[in-house]
Amino acid sequence: MNINTKTLLKFFEKIGRSFSVRALRLGAATRLFYLILIYSADSFKRIHLTIREIYFTGVMSLVIIIVSAFFVGMVLGLQGYYTLQKYGSSEAIGVLVALSLVRELGPVVTALLFAGRAGTSITAEIGLMKATEQLSAMEMMAVSPVARIIAPRFWAGVIAMPILASIFSMVGVLGGYVVAVPIIGVDEGAFWSQMQANVDFRFDIVNGLIKSVVFGIACTIIALFEGFDAPPTAEGVSRATTRTVVTSSLAILGLDFVLTSFMISG
């Protein structure tokens, strides 16, 4: 075998290994998702665990969500007014702000912030629990860590995300209002009435909520899996935390495109 053939073989081996590792991880994540669904009934019996996690993932994320939403809304108000006034339709600023937030920015930015704030904390917490043998200890006490630790966090994420996205959209609209009405001087009546007339409950608000639920499932399962699968070392947990942010962000943006395509065509 000459050197070129050897190099080529090594190259394909490397690609093959990389694909097989990814396929195995995807399989393991799917298995974890399946186990979560199986153990959900057990987990709901101890509903206080899910409520506690909603507090940690949802309530504790409120500050970053509210502050970001307010700024995003204000920027939308400014940018929107600047463009719309060129066409003499600056009263439509309310519609622009509301539709941008409810359809896209609300679910997407909330999910990105959620992945950074709550997702990383879930991964690090579970990774450290694994590294300090807390999950093994639970297993040895005949208590399933999936039922006791994983499933409550999953449902907390799925429940918290649409609520956070709704709050994001509401605060964002308020930010847009603050810039458009009191500062720029757009007519208040036109701001609210155009928004009320043009934002459709089924097509805009419900679709936005569907997106945020899907993002909630994706972000939480990624964070949980990365923590559960992390090598039990400091470096392993740190890499898993980074992977949570990167994978979640890519998944959110990819899923957003897919969902938007279906929603617009359907």
Binding site: L128, M129, T132, E133, Q134, S136, A137, M138, M140, A142
Partner: peptide, 19 residues
Amino acid sequence: IYRLRRKMGMLFQHGALFS
């Protein structure tokens, strides 16, 4: 296995207390 583990107690090297 869970039934068997209920007959067992285990002390881990560093305690593995739930933090």
